Amino acid sequence: MDAFDAIPDPVVIDILNKVGDVKTLIRCRSVSKRFNSLATQSDSLLLQLDQILGTTESDSEIDSPIASFFRSLFKSIHGFLPIFSRPANPAEILTRSPKTPAQILAGFNRIRNLEVELYGGDVKLEKGAAVKWKAEFGETLKTCVIVAFRSATVNTSATESPIDGVVESDSEFVCGLKTRVVWTISALMAASTRHYLMRDLVKEHKEMEKLTVRDREGEGTVVMDAAGMKEYRETEARVDEKGFERVRDRTVVPSVRMSMRHAPSLKLKSGICLEAATLVVVRPTGVASDDNDAELATEAFAADGGDCMYGEAVTALLKRRRNVLEMNSF
């Protein structure tokens, strides 16, 4: 007897939970009947969409006419030879496309904690600029914290505290405000798009307690807790009952109140100088107070995986004067 067969099922499931990666677990399902049964009981998963969809650099290249001809010919021949078809294999989901997250995870019925990693960021910026954000959703947006800057340079001789005396001209302020609003809208649209992408997954996996959606570049993160997902399911059920038609590719952003702080030039204690540094805390209008800006921003960035530059920028920007703006739903 194989010694592995003597290991109790709960221990095997615990090992598979440590693996986590959905691509690997789907392949494990093809090993044996036992693995096929146990792999789907993993409750802590990492779904990397770029790997699951099988995207590679060569996939994006334009086919030559000859390659296209032979590919079409092969498909035509294959269509006339059903005798060579074989039963579906769980691992085939790795190469079939397109697949939504809900379709990929259809066989996993005990998901508690799910992390979804996307292939790249959504916000298109000028060269050198950076935007990083974290948004929490339920039925719709609950909060979003955004940190952005136009450029970052390193000054190894800088050891003093962040600069507080830089004064903007009126024209610089107006131009800078337009840029900061564009950054904010772009981040909110990216967050709402990711939230909408997970709609079927949230509705089908009612046992989930935490969902995190991030991109590989670390640009933005969407989080949903158990209460937020329950709220979303109940709202969607009411909408489905009324038969409303959905013609959109993202969740509608509600009217929001933006608490914005910025610095034309922010020199950090680490020696990094950020130009047009901006911190924005976004909440739905009339839902929550502005008193916990520091708590939200610190939780989102100060302890974010050792990303000290963003944490230090948040700490410095929280000392700046706050400007409050409101924006209609979009």
Rank of each mutant, 00 (worst) to 15 (best):
M1R: 11
D9G: 09
D9H: 14
D14E: 15
N17Q: 13
V19Q: 06
D21N: 12
D21P: 02
V22M: 06
I26W: 02
I26R: 01
S32A: 07
R34Q: 14
N36S: 13
L38Y: 03
A39K: 01
L49Y: 01
G54S: 04
G54C: 03
T55E: 09
E57D: 14
E57P: 02
E61I: 07
S64W: 03
S64L: 14
A67G: 04
S68D: 06
S68V: 12
F74K: 15
F74W: 14
G79E: 11
I83W: 02
R86D: 07
L94P: 14
T95S: 09
P98N: 08
T100V: 04
P101M: 04
Q103K: 12
I104P: 05
G107Q: 15
R110T: 09
R112S: 11
N113E: 04
E115A: 10
L118W: 03
D122K: 04
E126R: 11
E126I: 10
K127G: 07
G128N: 10
K132C: 07
K134Y: 01
E139M: 11
L141N: 01
F149W: 12
R150C: 12
S151T: 08
T153Y: 08
V154L: 15
N155A: 14
T156V: 15
G165D: 10
V174W: 15
K178D: 07
R180V: 00
V181N: 11
V181D: 12
V182F: 03
I185D: 13
I185K: 11
I185Y: 04
A187Y: 00
L188C: 04
A191N: 10
S192V: 02
H195T: 09
M198T: 04
L201T: 03
E204Q: 15
H205R: 09
H205M: 05
E207R: 08
K210S: 11
K210D: 05
T212D: 04
T212L: 07
V213I: 11
D215T: 12
R216C: 08
E217L: 15
G218W: 01
M229R: 13
Y232D: 00
R238Q: 06
V239P: 00
E241D: 08
G243K: 06
G243P: 06
R248T: 14
V253F: 05
P254D: 13
S255Y: 13
H262A: 12
S265F: 14
L268W: 03
K269R: 14
C273L: 11
C273H: 12
L274D: 00
L274H: 02
P284E: 03
P284Y: 01
N292L: 11
A294S: 06
A303D: 15
D304F: 03
C308Y: 05
E312D: 05
V314C: 04
T315F: 09
T315V: 09
L318K: 00
N323E: 15
E326R: 11
